[in-house]
């Protein structure tokens, strides 16, 4: 197994830009880390999860669905010009990606998503490169390559044939990982606390057992300002709104991230809304991921990435709410 420095990885990613549309963690103008191109800023693999959901590379905030031109000719959004290579998924992000792959392919296959997802290369990041040097859980799969930081270099672990072929092209002389290093890192990963996951599990059980009363949701909802950030930052949120605009004689159908925290999300044409109260919408946000999806998919669809907690201005993200549920209703 190779070990590579950040600079060697940067060179490696740069060399792949002719064949891939490469997204890597970069540090922007004011220090914000995003998934962007190498031309946007220095490579920033360290620092923990990317604030924006990484699944946005395949499911962006705004996308075209199709265009109908003046001659009524229909043109569907097609495959991307180059396959996507994206670096920076955490173990939790990879769980999210696995779920939305399933979500977008079951029953109705979302071609717009798979136009980007098919043929893509996904690279995970883990090890001692979390926020303030914290250890990030090793995924151990679910991606083509995982870069596991040992404090000095990134161990390059390939899990798929595509990942192995690509990582062979990484130039990192005299960098073989010493014997026992991966075992040590794996032990460190396995020893990570699971408090947040345990809290979410317990809250899920309490919700499913009907132990969380309505007035609790009223209390939480009173703090919701419907900023929609929880949905827009969540890697497993997949809802979008579809709308048409006539532009330069063409009718363009487009889609944009939607939010179940908005009144219009469920409103009927009559104006009646079965989820017309904020309490119902707040309840839905949590219940959907921790109870309804357990029934539908056999597992929760919150992977405990923590983004909704980071972006919520009134501290009612998933972890915060679940903590309150466990404290009050256990």
């Amino acid at each position: 197994m190779k070990r590579a420095t950040t600079e060697q990885l940067r060179t490696f990613f740069a060399s792949l830009q002719t064949e891939f549309d490469v997204y890597v963690p970069v540090k922007l103008h004011d220090g914000t880390r995003v998934l962007g191109s190498l031309s946007e800023g220095p490579l920033a693999l360290e620092g923990g999860k990317i604030p924006q959901k990484p699944t946005s590379v395949f499911f962006p905030q705004f996308d075209k669905v199709f265009v109908v031109d003046e001659q009524s000719k229909f043109q569907m959004a097609g495959p991307v010009a180059k396959p996507i290579m994206v670096v920076g998924f955490t173990a939790q992000d990879l769980d999210c990606l696995e779920f939305i792959d399933k979500f977008f392919s079951e029953n109705y296959r979302d071609d717009i998503y798979f136009n980007k997802r098919d043929g893509s290369v996904v690279v995970g990041v883990s090890g001692r490169c979390g926020k303030d040097g914290e250890f990030m859980k090793i995924a151990g799969g679910k991606c083509d390559i995982e870069l596991i930081y040992d404090g000095e270099r990134f161990v390059v672990q390939a899990y798929t044939d595509k990942g192995r072929q690509l990582s062979e092209r990484l130039v990192a002389p005299d960098s073989e990982a010493p014997a026992g290093l991966m075992d040590a890192l794996s032990r460190e990963s396995d020893a990570l606390p699971t408090d947040d996951e345990d809290t979410i599990d317990k809250a899920s059980d309490l919700i499913r057992a009907g132990k969380v009363p309505e007035d609790f949701w009223d209390d939480i909802a009173s703090r919701c300002i419907a900023c929609t950030s929880c949905n827009l930052a969540c890697p497993t949120c997949t809802c979008f709104e579809v709308y048409d605009r006539k532009q330069n004689g063409k009718m363009v159908r487009q889609r944009i991230w939607d939010s179940c925290q908005l009144d219009g999300f469920m409103r009927e044409a009559s104006g009646h809304n079965p989820s017309g109260r904020q309490m119902q919408r707040t309840h839905r946000r949590i219940h959907h991921k921790l109870a309804a999806d357990v029934e539908r998919w056999g597992h929760k669809t919150c992977m405990v990435c923590g983004r909704c907690d980071d972006v919520c201005p009134t501290e009612i993200g998933m972890k915060s709410v679940c903590k309150m549920i466990v404290e009050r209703f256990s």
Binding site: D30, G31, T32, R33, V34, P51, Q52, S56, P60, Q61, F62, D63, I225, A226, C227, T228, S229, L232, Q247, I256, S259, L262, D310, V311, C312, P313
Partner: peptide
């Protein structure tokens, strides 16, 4: 095609309201 909050801004701190998240959508 979108908006991404600034993580480090002294006021917004990586957060936005609904109008901020949608501030790109009228331009086109």
């Amino acid at each position: 095609v979108g908006v991404e909050p600034s993580s480090n801004h002294v006021v917004s701190k990586g957060q936005l309201c609904v109008k901020g998240w949608n501030a790109f959508n009228f331009a086109n």
